[in-house]
């Protein structure tokens, strides 16, 4: 039982982590509450589906093309929509929500509302610690880990990463130090959209695709980001891991109550936030504490 929780928890939390980190990044840097983040995930998944199943491209090729297209779409959204109303946070929230709804409707109209599936990148399963693990699951976990590691290296080892972190900490001072804040924001949006797309590449073959699939993960990644502390990348990862494992524990330990998985993990989030209002790794200035 313990092994099963471990393996399945890693799979669930890995995807959440990559999605949550992307969301957290653009929120931290550009203060954009991007409700369309999981819609980007969905768009990539459907692009891969169209590429592999309707145009007959191999998985890798259509994955690369889809990731590129999604990053382009994210950048366009940022430049044409979000950037122009950035000061009005709730307006950005609603605009991004409308973008997500638009994506859903266009998919419904063009591809109709039934479920679809992407063929797994690798098939078959292996027994680890006596638990059956699909190769696709391993692929997902390893892909998520590699992505997170790559992001960590980018943020800590490169000049661009330094600039991104500087803007996230204090965009005005960063601007005074000669960092081109608007360009950094644009690049961050590209990275954020790219992370959503990569999450789709590694995880979309696991779940049925349909035009409403952006809503459920949106709730969970918002919860993960807040649980970890807004704007903290490390926090988002930990938040995702906690929620992912909370879900898995409910499913595994109380099989009759697995429909409660969402409710239980959100209740866990509420409890943590009551105890620690700034999230696990969030920073709060003493004078702002209530």
């Amino acid at each position: 039982m313990l092994e099963r929780i471990l393996v399945n928890g890693l799979v669930t939390s890995g995807t959440y982590a990559v999605l949550a980190v992307g969301f957290s990044l653009i929120f931290g840097v550009a203060k954009i509450f991007n409700m369309a983040h999981t819609a980007l995930y969905m768009i990539t998944a459907f692009l891969i589906f169209v590429g592999t199943n309707q145009l007959g491209f191999p998985y890798a090729l259509s994955a690369v093309v889809s990731v590129g297209a999604t990053i382009g779409f994210g950048l366009i959204c940022y430049a044409l929509l979000f950037d122009r109303v950035k000061v009005h946070q709730t307006a950005v929230m609603i605009i991004s929500l409308a973008v997500a709804m638009l994506g859903q409707e266009i998919l419904l109209l063009t591809l109709s509302g039934h479920y679809r599936g992407i063929a797994p990148f690798v098939t078959g399963s292996i027994d680890i610690l006596g638990v059956a693990v699909l190769y696709q699951h391993l692929f997902t976990v390893l892909g998520c880990l590699a992505t997170l590691f790559g992001l960590w290296a980018l943020l800590t080892k490169t000049n661009l990463g330094k600039a991104i972190r500087a803007v996230a900490q204090d965009s005005e001072t960063a601007n005074l130090m000669g960092i081109n804040v608007s360009r950094v924001c644009l690049i961050t949006m590209g990275i954020s959209a790219g992370l959503a797309a990569v999450a789709a590449v590694v995880a979309a073959p696991l779940e049925p695709l349909h035009p409403g699939m952006w809503m459920l993960p949106l709730t969970m990644i918002l919860a993960a980001v807040v649980l970890g502390g807004l704007g903290s990348i490390k926090g988002s990862v930990f938040g995702a891991i906690i929620l992912g494992f909370a879900e898995t524990i409910v499913v595994t330990a109380v099989p009759g109550g697995s429909f409660l998985r969402g409710a239980v993990s959100l209740a866990a989030m509420v409890l943590v936030l009551i105890a620690r209002p700034e999230g696990l790794f969030g920073v709060v200035f003493e004078e702002e504490r209530l």
Binding site: V11, A132, L206, M213, V251, S258, F259
Partner: peptide, 21 residues
């Protein structure tokens, strides 16, 4: 045994591997 899942569960590998066991 009986396994109960949510109507929208996107991953039931946990339940299915328990069933397999």
């Amino acid at each position: 045994g009986e396994w109960v899942v949510s109507i929208t569960a996107s991953d039931v590998t946990a339940e299915m591997s328990a069933i397999k066991a």
